[in-house]
Computed example of a mutant assay.
Amino acid sequence: LAVAEERLRFGRDMHDVLGRNLSVIALKSELAVELAQRGNPAAVDQMVEVQRIARASQQEVRDVVRGYREADLPTELMGARGVLQAAGISVTVEGADGPAGIGAPAAVQAALGWVVRETATNVLRHGDPRHCSIRLARTRDAVVLEIENDGAGAADPLGGGGDGGGSGLAGLRERLGALGGSLTAGPVGDDPDLFRVTATVPLTASGPGGRTASDPGGRTASAGGERAALGERTASGERAAPSAPPASPSPDPSALPEER
């Protein structure tokens, strides 16, 4: 049911983002063809508008997809509590309503959300837990997430991400490492039945390319670069409709973009 609801929500978002814009692009393209066939230079204005709408649509699609790829910490905490309790495991969550859970930068919350999602899934998959505790704390310069469960025994709640086996632990370390964070996982003290995962992410973390916690993907700069590159390509000319005679000197065919 959750998967079906998410598909419906994604379908609605994509329809809202692309539906109107694609209709406008189609109409303006048809108008540009008619104007070009008449030799009316206004066809160029229509195609410039088509380009503008197409670029805006690209950015809107990126925003939608980025939102679905990122894990939201409050949502993941609520989901982990629900799925673990449904499996008969008692769950306690501490600190989610404080500054560690609410006041942390979005990139930090997203990274910790992935830790919650992966760990909760694997707590169910490995061992025989009866209790799981999730604790969020904020120090002066970092947010610390601890997830601890019993019933681990010899199993690795993260799917064998230590020296071999699965990739859950390695994937989480890579994700946190991009923000300058760290992740440790292992038995608590001498008790092999108790397993703890600790994730630490600096509030002022910087990842590859100088990204900060408030700008985890460097999206603004990269999107601007893509738009600039697209502007350079379109400035060299667009493919004309097959039946449309040129209203002005044709651009150099060698400068045309390979993709429409």
Rank of each mutant, 00 (worst) to 15 (best):
A241K: 00
G217T: 12
L112R: 00
A235Y: 03
R38N: 07
D150Y: 08
P242H: 01
L169W: 01
A142H: 04
G168Q: 06
V201E: 04
I53C: 08
L203Y: 08
A235T: 06
T92H: 02
V144Y: 00
Q109I: 13
G79T: 10
A255T: 15
A36K: 00
I102L: 13
A111C: 06
A96C: 10
L183K: 03
E34W: 01
D45G: 08
V188I: 14
R9G: 01
D252T: 05
L158A: 07
A87H: 05
I134C: 03
G186S: 08
H131N: 15
A32S: 13
M47H: 02
L179I: 12
A43G: 05
V3G: 11
A120C: 11
A80H: 11
R38P: 00
L84V: 14
P202Y: 07
T121W: 00
F195K: 03
A221E: 13
A4E: 14
R69H: 13
E259W: 02
R219D: 13
K28T: 13
V61D: 03
A32Q: 02
R138P: 07
V93E: 05
S90K: 13
E258C: 08
G113H: 01
L145V: 11
G160W: 00
V3R: 14
P187K: 09
L203F: 04
D13M: 10
G207K: 03
P105L: 00
G162S: 04
P245T: 07
G180Q: 10
A205R: 10
N122H: 15
F10C: 04
T184E: 15
V201M: 11
A240M: 11
Q85G: 10
G103N: 08
L22C: 08
A241Y: 04
G217P: 00
R7L: 14
E60G: 09
F10S: 14
N122Q: 03
V188E: 09
R140N: 09
G231A: 15
V201Y: 04
R260A: 09
A240I: 08
E174F: 07
Q58E: 10
G237E: 00
A43V: 11
G171C: 03
L172I: 04
G165L: 11
G218K: 00
L27K: 12
V50P: 05
S23Y: 14
P245W: 01
I25A: 08
P242V: 08
P99S: 11
L8H: 10
E70C: 02
S182A: 14
V93H: 05
A152V: 11
N40A: 10
G231Y: 01
H126Y: 15
G218P: 09
A154I: 11
A110L: 05
N122Y: 06
R55H: 06
G127T: 12
V44G: 05
A235R: 10
V65K: 07
R20S: 13
L77R: 03
A228Q: 07
G159S: 01
A32M: 07
G181F: 09
R227C: 01
L176A: 07
A56D: 14
V123N: 02
L8Q: 15
G95K: 05
T119Q: 10
I134F: 00
G39W: 06
